[in-house]
Simulated assay, not measured.
Amino acid sequence: MKTHGFHHVAIICSDYQRSKRFYVEVLGFPVIQETYRSARNSYKLDLQVGEGDAIELFSFPNPPPRPSTPEACGLRHLAFKVADLDASVAALQAKGVDVEAIRLDELTGKRFTFFKDPDGLPLEMYEI
């Protein structure tokens, strides 16, 4: 099997409007398409993250909570590439987002930090 990268990452949120505001207004991801699926009482919001990268943000009635953060079995976190980590941190903090202290990846020498989405999903910014 040969892959060509990720097509999308899917996230289920507990409060669709709150998460939509966070991903669109706070993180600045453009909306590709928004769909309401009445048979499932569910929204699906397609967001553009990078060149060809996307997040699918879903709402479902009464989704189960995440077991723990970030050491639950399964997806640990999402990491976004940023060119200027200091500017990215400042932009998030100006919008009221708590951001952890910047750390240094001992394997690559690159800087990174973490913050959380409205449901506590760990998100990382990794300086390229």
Results as ranks from 00 to 15, higher is better:
residue 39 A to E: 15
residue 53 D to E: 14
residue 11 I to W: 06
residue 79 A to L: 04
residue 36 Y to M: 06
residue 34 E to I: 01
residue 18 R to Y: 03
residue 15 D to S: 10
residue 105 D to T: 09
residue 105 D to Q: 11
residue 104 L to G: 00
residue 42 S to V: 00
residue 37 R to A: 04
residue 27 L to K: 05
residue 76 R to T: 08
residue 19 S to A: 11
residue 5 G to F: 00
residue 85 L to E: 03
residue 103 R to P: 01
residue 68 S to P: 05
residue 27 L to S: 04
residue 15 D to T: 02
residue 24 V to I: 13
residue 114 F to K: 12
residue 58 F to Q: 01
residue 121 L to C: 09
residue 60 F to A: 14
residue 18 R to K: 14
residue 105 D to G: 06
residue 51 E to A: 11
residue 5 G to A: 04
residue 98 D to S: 13
residue 77 H to A: 07
residue 28 G to Q: 12
residue 13 C to N: 02
residue 40 R to Q: 14
residue 37 R to Q: 10
residue 63 P to W: 00
residue 11 I to N: 09
residue 70 P to I: 03
residue 9 V to S: 06
residue 8 H to I: 02
residue 13 C to Q: 00
residue 57 L to E: 06
residue 23 Y to K: 11
residue 45 L to M: 08
residue 3 T to R: 12
residue 90 A to K: 13
residue 13 C to G: 07
residue 126 Y to I: 06
residue 87 A to L: 09
residue 28 G to I: 07
residue 69 T to P: 00
residue 17 Q to H: 14
residue 55 I to L: 15
residue 26 V to R: 04
residue 50 G to K: 07
residue 59 S to P: 08
residue 14 S to T: 09
residue 106 E to H: 06
residue 18 R to L: 09
residue 96 G to I: 03
residue 40 R to C: 04
residue 67 P to N: 03
residue 127 E to N: 10
residue 1 M to K: 14
residue 64 P to G: 01
residue 26 V to E: 03
residue 82 V to W: 02
residue 108 T to M: 04
residue 83 A to K: 15
residue 83 A to G: 15
residue 54 A to H: 08
residue 31 V to I: 15
residue 112 F to L: 12
residue 19 S to N: 13
residue 40 R to N: 13
residue 116 K to T: 08
residue 18 R to Q: 11
residue 121 L to Y: 11
residue 37 R to M: 06
residue 39 A to F: 10
residue 112 F to P: 02
residue 115 F to C: 13
residue 101 A to E: 15
residue 94 A to V: 05
residue 44 K to G: 05
residue 35 T to R: 14
residue 62 N to Y: 04
residue 74 G to R: 05
residue 31 V to L: 07
residue 82 V to S: 14
residue 65 P to T: 02
residue 119 D to C: 05
residue 71 E to Y: 12
residue 34 E to S: 09
residue 59 S to A: 06
residue 1 M to R: 13
residue 78 L to I: 15
residue 47 L to P: 05
residue 5 G to Y: 00
residue 8 H to N: 13
residue 107 L to M: 10
residue 121 L to H: 13
residue 40 R to F: 09
residue 28 G to A: 12
residue 12 I to C: 09
residue 63 P to R: 02
residue 128 I to L: 14
residue 52 G to P: 04
residue 87 A to D: 13
residue 58 F to M: 12
residue 7 H to R: 01
residue 54 A to V: 06
residue 86 D to E: 14
residue 49 V to A: 09
residue 73 C to A: 11
residue 95 K to N: 07
residue 5 G to E: 00
residue 2 K to H: 10
residue 57 L to N: 12
residue 95 K to H: 05
residue 39 A to Q: 13
residue 104 L to E: 15
residue 47 L to M: 09
residue 88 S to W: 02
residue 36 Y to W: 12
residue 91 A to S: 15
residue 119 D to A: 06
residue 79 A to V: 03
residue 2 K to S: 10
residue 68 S to K: 11
residue 64 P to L: 02
residue 86 D to Q: 13
residue 75 L to Q: 10
residue 10 A to P: 01
residue 122 P to S: 12
residue 7 H to D: 00
residue 109 G to M: 08
residue 15 D to Y: 01
residue 10 A to I: 03
residue 71 E to Q: 10
residue 23 Y to A: 10
residue 55 I to W: 02
residue 90 A to E: 12
residue 105 D to F: 02
residue 97 V to S: 08
residue 112 F to R: 09
residue 14 S to A: 08
residue 51 E to Q: 09
